[in-house]
Amino acid sequence: MAINNNGSHSAALELCYESINGSCIKTSYSSGPRVILYLAFGSGTLLAVLGNLLVMVSIIHFKQLHSPANFLIASLACADFLVGATVMPFSMVRSVESCWYFGESYCKFHSCFEGSFCYSSIFHLCFISIDRYIAITDPLVYPTKFTLSVSGQCILLSWFLAIAFSFSLLYTGANDAGLEELVSALTCVGGCQIAVNQTWVLIDFLLFFIPTLVMVILYCKIFLVAKQQARKIESLSSKTESSSEGYKARVFKREKKAAKTLGIAVIAFLISWLPYFIDSIIDAFVGFITPAYIYEILLWFAYYNSAMNPLIYAFFYPWFRRAIKLIVTGEVFRGHSSTIDLFSQKK
């Protein structure tokens, strides 16, 4: 998190609140760019909300999708859905209008939500990578290791750690300790400014970096194991294989595809959020000099990650495309729709 100065360095004379002393200066866009920005940000917001809602409904409604791994994916979709519902719409207005019109209280809530859902996504992805690692390296024992109970504990831990950290950091004021003069100088009516000092920006970065490092290491191991298993399956294909070996090969192929898809989701997350975290940590050590428009670009680049996962699932998972069709056409409201076989029916 960095200071978003909402146009305080702008030379424009228009104010966020014309009748209030100490109002922030407003940087206005002409009508053309404003429409384009609202369309761009609005479409991303809509996709994040509707796309992740479809993921959650699909996994919750269809019994065939009730698995520990899929419940983790549904919880991850919930975090992305909440970004689209509680963060992106308000950030859209702030980014385009360069003013915060939603009150000081919600400014802090908005920043807490932003941090909570970001870290929740990171922790979910980390647990998902652990799940995929166990599924690939020991597919026959995997169902007894990663149970519904274990999945539930991972989900609760992901949400609790993220929410507890973000809210305690901002509501205790630990984030801007030592930056009081800077915050006071930049505070104006119509601004939503969150400063994070050097100590806490380092902790922020470590909370991003450590789970990321775990994910990268595990996915590297996953694909090394997958390569070895693929060679073994090829060597067995020319021989008469036992039923147990054939079953193990089929399970491996399924888990490998799931690992590949979720690996792409991890890469998309890193590409989206890494520039923001790097800028935040540099900004804190050089005096918060990042221009407001650069900060907004990096932030929206990160926000758009919440809209990407449903697109990844739709591209790689035929069962998700089938589920979307059943939901959109209203077939899910028919009796026994929850027992439909999404894997064997035609797309």
Rank of each mutant, 00 (worst) to 15 (best):
A2V: 03
I3P: 12
N6Q: 04
N6C: 15
G7H: 07
S10N: 05
E14N: 09
L15N: 03
C16N: 05
Y17G: 08
Y17V: 11
E18I: 09
S23G: 04
S23A: 03
C24Q: 05
S28A: 07
S28T: 12
S30N: 05
P33T: 07
I36N: 01
F41C: 06
G42E: 01
L46A: 12
V49I: 11
L53M: 08
L54R: 00
F62H: 01
N70L: 12
A74P: 08
V83Y: 05
F90W: 10
V93R: 03
C99L: 01
C99W: 02
Y106S: 02
Y106R: 02
H110V: 02
S111I: 03
F113N: 14
E114Y: 15
C118H: 14
F123D: 06
I136P: 00
T137Q: 10
D138M: 14
D138H: 11
V141H: 07
P143C: 12
T144S: 14
K145C: 06
S151Y: 05
A162M: 08
D176G: 06
L179G: 03
E180T: 04
E180D: 11
A185Y: 10
L186S: 15
C192H: 00
A195F: 15
N197W: 03
T199W: 04
V201F: 06
F205R: 03
F208W: 09
F209V: 13
T212M: 08
L213M: 12
L213E: 08
I217D: 02
L218P: 05
S237V: 05
T240D: 14
E245W: 00
G246A: 12
Y247Q: 14
R250A: 15
A258T: 15
G263V: 04
I264K: 06
I267C: 07
A268Q: 12
A268S: 13
A268P: 08
D279L: 10
I282E: 00
V286M: 07
G287M: 02
T290Q: 01
L299E: 12
F301H: 13
Y303H: 12
Y303C: 07
F316Q: 04
P318C: 10
K325N: 13
I327Q: 08
E331T: 01
E331G: 06
F333P: 07
S337V: 01
I340C: 08
F343C: 09
